[in-house]
Amino acid sequence: MRLTCPYCGSRGNDEFVYLGSADPVRPSHHDAPAEQWTAYVYERTNPAGAHRELWHHSFGCRSWLIVTRDTRTHEVLKTEPARDAAHTSSEVAVP
């Protein structure tokens, strides 16, 4: 399998480390309802089809990427840096 890193170009998947779905959003606070935290940490849609997922270019530029990939065919539909993806809702509040 090959992924195209926005910074480094087309690379073999052995340069990357996979984490999982990019969809769950970290609750904004530790006091958020327990169900939200359980959902964030444990529950996955796991679709057969387009899947937004987090890959880390560990043996490259060390960027976290959000790759949209069809889990039935492995076709890559989109790749973008995670920090560019709209993730403002998950910005954490640090004292």
Binding site: V17, L19, A22, R26, L54, H56, S58, R62, S63, W64, P81, A82, R83, H87, S90, E91, V92, V94
Partner: peptide, 18 residues
Amino acid sequence: AEAVLRHMEFCHQVLAPS
């Protein structure tokens, strides 16, 4: 060693990109 750095980069790039 490797997993911690990756985790910190996750915390930065995904959880706290600003």
